[in-house]
Structures are given as C-alpha cells and as structure tokens.
Write a protein that binds this DNA or RNA. Structure first.
Length: 163
DNA sequence: GCCAACGTTGGC
DNA sequence: GCCAACGTTGGC
C-alpha cells in the first residue's frame, strides 16, 4: 500500500466535484505523461491514500483526502476527437493512456505550499522540489502522517490505507 | 504574463 | 541515437 499526491485543476475536477461523486469516485482523466501513467498502471492499488491537490488556480494546495478506488483502465478521453485529451496516435487495441478512479473522502482546509514548506518533515517532498511538474507523485509515510495528522488533524471515518 | 524546468519532437 | 528547438506546466 502506498500514498500519492494527485494534482487537479479545480476548474475541471475540484474536491467538491469529487465529493459529489463520492460513492463511485471520479475517473482521473487527462494524464498524458508516461511517468505519471506508470505510477497508476504499475504501483497504485485500491485503497492507497491520495492527497487531493488543487493546481493552476488562485489558491494552490492540498484541498482534501481521497483514495484510489479502482485498478487502472484505459482513459476514454484519448479516443474522443472532441476531447482536449484526444490522442490521435493511440488506438483502442493498444491504449496508450490509463487512469484510475479516485474517491474523495474528506475536504480539508487548504494547505498551501508555503505551509508545507515550513514543515521539517516535508523538506524532501517531491511537490516542493523546484521545477517539479509531475501531476502524480509518491508520498512517504512520514509525509502522509505529517500532513494528515499534524496539519489537517482529521479523523477519517473510514481509515485510508489500513487493512 | 514571466520564466524555470523539463518532456517531446524531428532533422540529421 | 544525438540534441536543438519547441511546447507545456504551474507557481508567482
């Protein structure tokens, strides 16, 4: 079991959108980076903890707690010519892009990058590294504990990532 | 809108 | 397979 940080532009899929679809989760469409795809394809497991991050917006930061809700499967938007995520080079026989469903568990107060940078436990966090653009990054147990227990300080009804 | 960082493309 | 040019990301 692992932990992840996943970036979403709130205009497209905010924590509120995700919470509205809580039961089934939201399909994490639009990842078009091989490294991020490989995380979903090779390493994510149902029940993994997810830090739901709002990016490219007025207040970037962690906005909620979620969990991986499905195995990986082909991203349908790659085959849709009307979609901004359409990839003409991908064919259904051999889909290039995969996604997982993400189920939102809790909306949190917004944890800004500034606040994250202040934490000694988070000095090595990938999202805080200069120039990091990866939309999906692994999060360590220490980083998860710091954010969930110390900064957010919430009790999850349904514990993430505990069997 | 700037720009650093880094991924992708394509000519050779 | 190299690598310069170009495109994208995303905080500020």
């Amino acid at each position: 079991m692992s932990y992840w940080l996943m970036k979403s532009e709130p205009d497209e899929a905010s924590i509120d959108h995700a919470l509205a679809l809580k039961e089934k989760g939201i399909p994490w469409t639009g990842v078009r980076n091989y490294q991020a795809r490989n995380f979903m394809r090779d390493q994510m497991r149902i029940g993994d903890g997810v830090l739901f991050y709002h990016s490219s917006c007025e207040q970037p930061g962690i906005a909620g707690i979620a969990e991986v809700a499905s195995d990986s499967y082909p991203d349908p938007t790659q085959f849709d010519p009307q979609s901004p995520y359409f990839d003409p080079k991908s064919v259904p026989e051999q889909p290039r892009w995969l996604l997982v469903d993400v189920r939102a568990l809790k909306k949190t107060r917004l944890i800004s990058l500034t606040e994250l940078r202040e934490q000694p436990e988070l000095q090595e966090m990938l999202i805080l590294r200069r120039g990091n653009r990866l939309s999906i990054t692994p999060v360590t147990q220490t980083e998860w504990d710091c954010i969930v227990n110390k900064l957010v300080n919430i009790v999850l009804n349904q514990p993430v990532n505990k069997k």
